[in-house]
Structures are given as C-alpha cells and as structure tokens.
Design a protein around this nucleic acid. Structure first.
Lengths: 215, 215
DNA sequence: TAGATTGTTAATCGATTAACAATC
DNA sequence: TAGATTGTTAATCGATTAACAATC
C-alpha cells in the first residue's frame, strides 16, 4: 500500500485531458453550476464517463455518490495537480515569429504561466520589447535565469540551434524545456522536455486526408 | 488477406514519428548518406529499432536485408504516405498573434503546406497583408474556399468562436480542420479535426515539474 | 560463408473500457 | 427507499517490445 498522501503518477493521456475538463468546469462555474457528475462531463465532451472518473481521481478529488463533485473543489484540485495554482515563470529563447506570438499570447494567464523575458542573438531584435517583455541578448540568459529563478525555458529557435541553446538553458538552472523546434533534445537526467511538434500534428491530418481521398 | 496494394492504416503514434524520421533522413541525404538501417535510425533518435521498422513499414517501403533502406526512397515513401509529395492548400481563420505567426512561418514549406489566404472580422486587420498573403473578411471565406479548392482550415480564433467558424469552414468545403483553439469541435462525419492544444502540452510539463519539486 | 538486417509473428505492457460493490 | 453516482477492481484493446525465420 502506498503511504498516505502519496501522489499518484498520472498517465500522460490523463494529464493532457485535464485542461479540457478545466475549461468546461470554468464555464460551468461562471454559469453558476455548483456540482457536476462524470456522466455530465463525459456527455458534454464526448468522453467515456469512466475515463473521466479515472482522470479526475488522479488529482485526489473526492466526490459524493449520487451527487458528483463540487465544481469549485474540482477546479482547485486540477489547478493544484497541474501546478497552475501558483505562477510559473518562464524564459523564452528565439524572438522570431513564433516566439513573439507566444510572448503576445494572453491565454497563458489561465495556465499561470508568465514569460518574464525573451532572448535572441539578432541585433535588430535585442533591446526591443514585445508585449511589455524585453528581448535580451542570449548572453544575458544565465544572469536573468538566476535572478528570476525561472524554471521553464520556451524554445522557439531554428531547429539547428535547439541543442546548443538547450545546453545554455540547463546550465543556467532551467529544469523544464518546452520545445517548439521539432528537434530531438538531449538533456541530463532530471531535466524535463515537452515537445510541441507541428509537423507531427500535421502528419496525422494530411495522412488521414490522403487516405480519405484515395479510398 | 487484404487486397494487393491495400493501404495499411497507420497507428497515430507511428504517424507522429514519421516527420521525425524525415528530418533525420533529409539531413543524412544532404550529408551524402545513401543507405540507412533501422538500427542506425533508432540509435540516432533514441528509439527502439523494431519500432522504427514497424513505423517505416506503414509507408510501404521495402528494404534490403543486411543493407537497410535507400535514403532517397525512404524520404519519398514517407512524403508520399503523409501526402507531402504534393502541395496542400489551406485557409487560415483568425489573424491574431498566433495566426500571423503561422502565416509568417517558413517551415510549412517542408510539409508542402501553403496558406493561400487569411480571414478575420477585425476591420483593422481586413485588407492588410501578412507575409504576402491577404487578410480577407470572414464573409469572403466561402468564395475563396471554392475558387482555391483548399481542403484544410487552420483555426486560430478565440475559443468562443471556434465552433461557429468551423461550421462556416465545413459548409465551404473544408475537409480537415487544424485546431489551435483548445475548444472541442463538433464536425460532420468525414470531416477531420486535429488539435494542437498548448494547454494539454503545458499540463504535462508543469505537473511533472510539480511532482519533481515536491518529492 | 557468416552475420547483420529485414519482415513478420508472438509476448508484454499500459491505457481504455467494463463490471460491480459501496454510498448518499 | 430506490436509484444515480462514486471508487475500485477486472477485462479488453491497442501499441510497444521481443523473438525468430528469411535473406542478401
């Protein structure tokens, strides 16, 4: 038996669904709904209700038979479990098109993610501001990483520079890399990498489209 | 037994890895490497070689025992299988920060994806150009969808408008929606949806970070 | 030839789905 | 109370990994 209070290790697919629940719950909360059942959530989102229950149980939430879960408690439990109950500070490297779009994106607030500064090596970008955040030279990253205590690095550089920038980040105390470059990153044990690979996503779309049109 | 020439239905995880192989193969090709084995690919990418072989076999590629695969054939087979051997035209709706970043992103060329026009309802955006592509009013979408024959719709509007814009797209002949909004979309049977959910990705990152720091 | 590699079939592993007792 | 729902345990399903014969 695991010790009392032991955190459950959530499967990645469950983790990825939690923000979907959170969005629905926030809407329900705004509409004044006080309690909700897995059945109702599943119906709304097109998911199996028993999968919803298993996903939610990861967060440690306890419900009431015949009633369901309190919406406010559920929101708090998911946010707590995802670490979205307190602010996460991030540094962004690569102030090109995608990097600037992420800097300007207001939606990160709902994930309690704050990009404190951006970095680049392009002289025409260094010294500018994007959405109120300074673009500094990459050489300043170690100092600002230390002074800000940021643990997350957002990587939006060209794929060819991804690995070398990752080394710089890790040496500066970054513990988790959110990788938008499509490159495979090597990191020391204990450092996390999460890939957002547009090519992988598009591959699913265009393959299925191809299959559909040639069958 | 399936009929000769029958396409294999590729599992989604395999499809998502194919672009990773393609990137490596393109580099090898540029370096002058003529043949490659699953063992070598797996070593390079940190993947099980038997998984690599299974993934590649989806594309219909045939290798030579003791030698491996021809790099140029493999590249062609993957591109063909993903539908990246010929251009895919797309319309983008939502010319905000993310939409404009995708319009300006040159990397889509490697996926043979071309965004032919963008759409918005903001009068200050309509009539402008982003990276050489016009931003038109959403009302013009049906006409341009028909004249361009575009089958892919890229959705970068606020989540609240996602469903209604999706209806417009589908009614205009769009067969596949690349959804960056985080909303769950309802579509008729036969229409494809592929989600890029930044919240889901970030959830994995911040949960693991939280677990690591409190254990 | 010997041995590395392909192609395929079987075993394992993990996530999803189903079953069911407990409970308000 | 009756019945809907939770929480948990078992069964199913699909993807990954392992095993092995065929082959150049």
């Amino acid at each position: 038996m695991p010790p009392a209070g032991a955190r459950k290790l959530a499967p990645e697919p469950s983790l990825r669904r939690l923000p979907v629940y959170l969005r629905l719950l926030t809407r329900l909360d705004a509409e004044g709904t006080r309690t909700v059942s897995c059945t109702a959530i599943g119906r709304e989102l097109g998911l199996d209700f028993t999968q919803v229950r298993k996903d939610l149980s990861c967060t440690g939430i306890v419900g009431t038979p015949r009633v369901g879960y309190r919406v406010d408690e559920l929101i708090a439990a998911i946010q707590r479990f995802l670490g979205w109950h307190r602010r996460t500070d991030a540094l962004l490297v690569g102030a090109g098109n995608l990097g600037r779009a992420l800097l300007a994106y207001e939606g990160f607030a709902q994930y309690a993610l704050r990009i404190v500064a951006a970095f680049d090596i392009d002289p025409s970008l260094v010294g500018t501001e994007v959405a109120g955040r300074p673009v500094r030279h990459l050489d300043d990253l170690p100092d600002i990483a230390e002074s800000s205590g940021a643990l997350v690095g957002i990587l939006t550089v060209p794929a060819g520079q991804a690995q070398s920038v990752t080394y710089t980040m890790v040496l500066s105390g970054i513990r988790a890399v959110w990788n938008f470059t499509g490159a495979r990153l090597e990191v020391p044990r204990g450092v996390l990498v999460e890939d957002v690979d547009l090519g992988a996503s598009l591959a699913v779309l265009t393959n299925r489209l191809e299959q559909a049109s040639t069958c």
